[in-house]
């Protein structure tokens, strides 16, 4: 459904992404791996319209996303979370979700736009709905990122390190949550994660970035065995 075609991005001469291409199949969970600075978050920012690519293009179905401002990308059904969380701090958890429900994707049934309770339940935030977002724990704020993104009614949900800094038990909860999101809502998920095991367990497909370039792509098992990945990424980290 999402096609990334030869995307490149440089910041003042420094190449953050180079010639990155891949296709995310409908209803899949698609993992993006890579060390710090490999260009993962830059890629999300480009898909979401927060950054303009220096070259290449991104398409969602027949729609060219490249060049659209973020709110138009959201209207087309693409949502993202922020690695460094950006909740609406002064608003309650409920209000955060309700705000996103009023915006986001255009073609949604009316019922979907009144589903704050369902989303809070799915993300395990139903117990803290009335609390100001700024007063949540980091783990809760990460889930609020997911809840708010989900509330925009996306066809494609991009999760940026939603498990970083969580305890192993919380990571397990989050894995279950991501699976439920796909099962219950039929959403395609793209996920950036440093927690390797989690990513391998969740993903149907994986792309590995290294210094802004794709060095491997395929099913997790195959990618994990790839010698280039081992030397560039696994070897260094584990």
């Amino acid at each position: 459904m999402l096609r990334v075609e030869r995307v490149g991005k440089s910041f003042g001469g420094v190449r953050a992404l180079q010639d990155v291409s891949f296709t995310v199949p409908e209803s899949s969970i698609f993992g993006i791996m890579g060390a710090n600075g490999a260009g993962k978050t830059t890629l999300f920012a480009i898909i979401a319209g927060n950054l303009a690519p220096s070259s290449g293009s991104v398409r969602l179905g027949d729609l060219r996303l490249t060049g659209l401002p973020p709110h138009r990308v959201a209207a087309a059904g693409v949502a993202r979370t922020f690695q460094i969380v950006r909740p609406f701090r002064g608003l309650s958890v409920q209000e955060n979700v309700e705000t996103a429900l009023r915006f986001g994707a255009r073609d949604r049934p009316a019922a979907a736009m009144a589903d704050a309770a369902g989303i809070l339940d799915l993300t395990g935030l139903d117990g803290v709905a009335g609390r100001p977002a700024g007063a949540l724990t980091l783990a809760q704020q990460k889930r609020l990122e997911v809840a708010r993104a989900l509330a925009t009614g996306p066809r494609l949900l991009m999760l940026d390190e939603v498990m970083a800094g969580l305890t192993p038990a919380e990571v397990q909860d989050t894995i279950a949550m991501v699976r439920r999101i796909r099962a219950d809502r039929g959403v395609t998920v793209m996920i950036i994660e440093h927690v390797m095991g989690a990513l391998m367990a969740l993903s149907d497909h994986v792309v590995v970035l290294d210094h802004g370039e794709t060095i491997a792509a395929g099913p997790p098992a195959q990618v994990a065995d790839d010698p280039a990945v081992r030397s560039a990424y696994l070897g260094r980290r584990h």
Partner: peptide, 25 residues
């Protein structure tokens, strides 16, 4: 109105507001 919810979102975090679909400009 939707306008009010959008403006409050802009106040709280303009980039996040844009990203959830608020036509900020």
């Amino acid at each position: 109105l939707r306008l009010g919810a959008g403006l409050v979102a802009i106040r709280e975090d303009e980039l996040a507001a844009d990203t959830i679909g608020v036509p900020t400009v």
